[in-house]
Structures are given as C-alpha cells and as structure tokens.
Amino acid sequence: MIVAAVLFTYAILLSTLTPRLLRGAHWTERAPRLGIVVWQALGVSALTAAALAGLALTVPTVRVSADLAELLQACVMALTAQYASPGGAAAGAAGAVLTLAVLGRTAWCVGHSAVRIRRARREHREVLDMVGRPDTTRGIVVLDHEEPAAYCLPGRHRRTVITTGALRVLDDDQLEAVLTHERTHQAERHDAVLAWAQALTHAFPRVPLFRTAEAEIARLVEMRADDMAAARSGRLTTAAALLAVAGGRAPAVALAAGGSTASRRVRRLIEPCRPLSRLRIVAGSLTAAVALAVPLLVVGGPAAAATQSNYCPNGTPADQVTMMR
C-alpha cells in the first residue's frame, strides 16, 4: 500500500508541477535534442508510475523463498490474505482497474494514431506520385505551386517535397539548408517522437504534463532540425531560408520547415549562438535518467530487500500469513 501511494503521489506531482517549471525553459532552446529527451522521459516516467501504482495495489508484496514451491505457496497465501478482507479486495480491484486503464488507453490511442497516420501518409504519397515531379539529383519531389513551401513526408517510403514557388525564392545555399532541415526530421525520426507525444495527449487530455510536452516537443524538433541545417549552411542562411518558406502550408501528417513557430526560430538563429555548457548537459541527462529510474526503484526497492531473507519458514499457513502481514 505504501509503495502504491508513493508511486501515485509521484505521478500526480510530476504531471502537475513539471509543466509549470519547464514550460518555455530557455535551456531547452540551447540544446533541443536534450530537451526532447527530457520531456519524453518525464512523460514515460509519469505513465510508468501510474501503471505500477495500480499493480502494487493489485499484487501484494511477496516475501521471497529460495524454494519455488514455498514461493508459490507464499504468493497464494498473500493474495488470499489481501482479498479476504473487503478493504483489501477493494484496493486490489481499484489497482487492477487503474493499471488496465492506463495501459489499455495508451495502447489503444497509440495504435489508433499509428493506423490513422499511416493511412493519411499513404494517401498523400499516392497524390504526390501522380502530381509531383521527382528530382533524382536532389532526391526531392517538386510540386507545382506558387506558394513557397517545403516539407517531408516521413515513414518507410519517405518524400521530401519542395514547391516550385520555393525553388524560385531560394538560392542554392538556402535550398541546401531547407533540405538538411527536412532530412534531419527523417533521420532522427521526429515523426515518431511527435506521434508518441500526440497519442499521450489524446489518451489523457486533462494531464498537463502530456499537453505541455506535446507543444514543447513540436517546437524543439523544429529547432533541432534548424541547428543541423545551420551547422551545414550557416545560421543566417538558414534563417533566410526559413523566412522564405515560413508561410507555406503542409499536410497535417508532414513535417514542414515553416509553420507557426518560424518567427521565433528565425530570431533564435539570428541571435548569437550560445550552446549549453557541458555541466548543464550532464545535469539534464541525469534528470532524464532519474525520472525514468524513480518508478522502478520505488517498486524494486522492497523487492530487492525481500530477496535477502527466506520468508517462507516452516509452520502453519495461518502463522505464515501472519508473518507476511
């Protein structure tokens, strides 16, 4: 019961306080990839803690025996002792519902989102194959459209799409920056990162952590792609390229170089580059690692302590049930 309470409290605090502390944090803009990892780790940690809290209520802690038969006997007696009382049965049922609800809702939303995105990408890819012109030299698909736009269609059959309007306004260096931006999205599977964040928000729309994480990750993946383009083509060249395609529209299942965050990203590229210090990078990495480890440590601590002793001594079943309590 104590383990379940600790895990549930941890999940609540993480889901409500973290968004207030980290939303719009400037350090994430200086290390976008680390920021993405931290937000993902926090979301997974909260989800794991909630699921394990329910599991801890459902399955009582069993003291470990070196003998398999005695261990199984201890498990049966522990379950019998817990569910014999109305309170224990209610707690166990509530824990089972919580765990199944968290895992089932997550699995359903992730699966539904994956099917929907795959279908939409396939349909858009079929349209591109009909109306687009492949440019094998650049490895892109050219779309006849006056509006300057650039986007990538991720997935196994990926496409990088540039409109004729964008080709007219971009010089060679700016075009290379845009292409590097889109290829970074594809190489680092930013589509999968965003899909996971969106699925969690859809599954638990009232959880502040998931809502904030989705918005922050959507912003940071674009900044990460900007940084890779700037490393190849220069910050000012990349900023000019983003301005040129900022107003371009892209399908919902694609990742575009422009978009609603373009103005803030252009200002970021124009400002002097201030990489995050190594100490802060280590601190951020440790934060992500600790967030992932806390639920496992809370559950694993009592289990590890239980392995130090044989808790199935000889005696009557009643005596053993009493000792397990």
Rank of each mutant, 00 (worst) to 15 (best):
W39I: 06
M77D: 05
A56V: 00
G35L: 09
A74T: 02
A31S: 15
G54T: 06
Q82P: 02
T80Y: 02
V62Y: 13
L42Q: 06
E29N: 06
T48A: 15
W39L: 05
G35W: 00
A46Y: 04
P60M: 10
A41Q: 09
G24E: 01
S45A: 15
S45Q: 10
A25H: 14
E70F: 03
L57K: 06
R33C: 02
A25T: 09
L22T: 13
L47R: 08
R20E: 01
A51N: 03
A46T: 07
H26Y: 02
L34D: 01
T58D: 08
M77K: 03
V44H: 08
L71F: 13
R20T: 04
W27H: 04
Y83I: 15
A49L: 11
L47P: 02
E29Y: 02
A51G: 07
T61R: 13
G43F: 01
A78N: 15
G24H: 07
A41H: 10
L71Q: 15
L21W: 11
H26D: 15
A81L: 12
Y83S: 13
D67L: 07
G54C: 04
A69W: 01
L79H: 12
Q40L: 10
L42K: 05
P19G: 07
A49P: 12
A84N: 02
I36Y: 04
R23D: 12
P19M: 07
A51Q: 03
G43A: 10
L22H: 10
A84Y: 00
G54P: 08
T58Y: 09
V38A: 12
I36E: 06
T80N: 05
G35T: 11
S65R: 05
L42C: 01
L72V: 14
L22K: 08
A53G: 03
V37W: 06
A66C: 00
W27L: 05
L47I: 05
Q73C: 03
Q73L: 10
S45C: 05
R20I: 04
R63Q: 13
A46E: 02
V76R: 11
T18N: 01
R63F: 13
G54W: 04
V62P: 10
L57E: 14
L22Q: 09
S45T: 11
L22S: 08
A50I: 08
P60Y: 12
A50Y: 10
A49T: 13
M77H: 05
A69F: 02
Q82T: 03
A81K: 14
A74E: 00
A69C: 00
V64Q: 07
A25C: 09
A46F: 06
R63A: 13
R63P: 10
H26C: 01
E70I: 14
V38F: 11
V44A: 13
V59R: 07
A84F: 02
A41F: 08
C75F: 12
G24Y: 05
A66E: 08
Q82N: 03
